[in-house]
């Protein structure tokens, strides 16, 4: 029961996000808008109810289950992209290597500089 009550809150914020997307013609998905709005609502409110916390924890823990039908599709639509596998593989492997390197170096640099300032 309590989890369903929290689920209702999540559904309502999702509907709110979808309404915002449609009415304001925003290029962002309704789920993301709902997430931003619920985060700000909680910040203003200053606390999160147990119902909402348990419902969100429940949904997040089965995220993998919810994305599986989409992942499976790659095996069934593969021939649609034949001839582009080199581009895809290179973009994913090299691109990810570069972005991980960038993130680590940037964070290291800015954190070190911040600590120097404090001294």
């Amino acid at each position: 029961m309590t989890m369903l009550r929290g689920f209702l809150v999540l559904v309502l914020f999702f509907i709110l996000g979808e309404s915002m997307r449609m009415l304001l013609a925003l290029p962002v998905s309704g789920g993301v808008l709902g997430m931003v709005v619920i985060t700000f609502t909680l910040m203003v409110k200053g606390s999160v109810s147990d119902d909402l916390a348990s419902a969100s924890q429940g949904l997040i823990s089965v995220l993998v289950l919810l994305i599986m039908p989409g992942v499976v599709g790659v095996f069934f639509t593969a021939d649609q992209f034949s001839g582009q596998w080199l581009a895809v593989a290179a973009a994913l492997l090299v691109g990810t290597f570069l972005s991980v390197l960038t993130t680590l170096l940037l964070m290291k640099l800015v954190t070190a500089r911040g600590e120097q300032h404090r001294e």
Partner: peptide, 15 residues
């Protein structure tokens, strides 16, 4: 359910 699940990511963000 992915829609409400995305909204749910806002809760750990707040926490």
């Amino acid at each position: 359910l992915l829609g409400p699940a995305t909204v749910a990511l806002g809760i750990p963000l707040y926490q």
